[in-house]
């Protein structure tokens, strides 16, 4: 368990000033061809995210939020429109360039954890560093720190099947953090957890946000979205609303 962060009276949470622009999406569309049918998953989305924002992307299924998440995570490229990540145009990048961006700039947290089943927590967390070319000793040290950070310092040599769901998701969060990414992108991070464990994970995200991280959570649960400071709602491939939530949910 992570101890709650000390309250900081000097900077009220809601008034935290925004840092530089990280994500700049302008008028992005995405078309899918399913057989004869053409699906407009995104019909022209414009979205800016600054450093140290805490954003929830919401919407019913079919609203295009998964497509938007894939786009934000550089897993997919738009059919039209423009996407700049940290000032770099990623809308026309090749597969391997996108892989490099994902490796350095984006920390993914998935609903199903997506850990390597036969590897220890430590090795799972080391994986992004392996792909980044970090030497073994430094790699191990940083992975250890990341696991300590999420409160799993004593579970480093456990494999996923020896951990509870909450612990697995913590390993995934540590893996997302270990390369110091520009954003942490969580896709229904509590979807496979009971509500108490889910709250604990959200509490972890709150803490990471307090420590200066930029967090984007994709969810359809209002309870989860209430942790964020800004809520973007999608419907039918368009942004329906984008507003700052005044007061975060009390834990």
């Amino acid at each position: 368990m992570i101890p709650p962060p000390p309250p900081d009276p000097a900077t009220p949470r809601t008034l935290r000033p925004h840092g530089p622009l990280v994500i700049d999406i302008r008028n992005v569309t995405k078309l899918y061809h399913m057989g004869d049918e053409t699906v407009h998953a995104l019909r022209g989305v414009t979205l800016q995210v600054h450093r140290n924002e805490y954003l929830a992307i919401m919407g019913p299924s079919g609203s295009g939020k998964s497509t938007l998440m894939n786009m934000l995570g550089c897993l997919d490229t738009p059919t039209s429109g423009h996407y700049e990540f940290n000032g770099k145009d990623v809308s026309s990048m090749e597969d391997d360039e996108l892989a490099a961006i994902r490796n350095r700039e984006i920390g993914f947290v998935f609903q199903t954890f997506n850990l390597l089943p036969r590897s220890t927590s430590l090795h799972n967390v080391e994986l992004p560093l392996i792909y980044a070319g970090v030497p073994p000793n430094e790699r191990r040290e940083r992975a250890r720190q990341a696991l300590d950070h999420v409160g799993l310092g004593d579970r480093m040599l456990h494999k996923p099947n020896e951990l509870s769901g909450g612990q697995r998701q913590r390993v995934a969060v540590a893996r997302a953090l270990v390369n110091h990414p520009s954003i942490i992108l969580a896709d229904e991070p509590t979807g496979n957890l009971d509500s108490k464990t889910g709250e604990e994970i959200m509490y972890l995200f709150d803490t990471l946000y307090e420590q200066g991280n930029t967090i984007i959570v994709v969810t359809h649960e209002e309870d989860i979205a209430r942790h964020a400071r800004r809520a973007v709602r999608l419907r039918d491939g368009l942004i329906e609303s984008d507003r700052v939530t005044v007061e975060p949910a009390a834990v």
Binding site: F108, N114, L127, R175
Partner: peptide
Amino acid sequence: TKEIGSRKAIGARRRT
């Protein structure tokens, strides 16, 4: 396949 997806998401290139 899913593991390949996860690896790619966290930065594995085609070569990897």
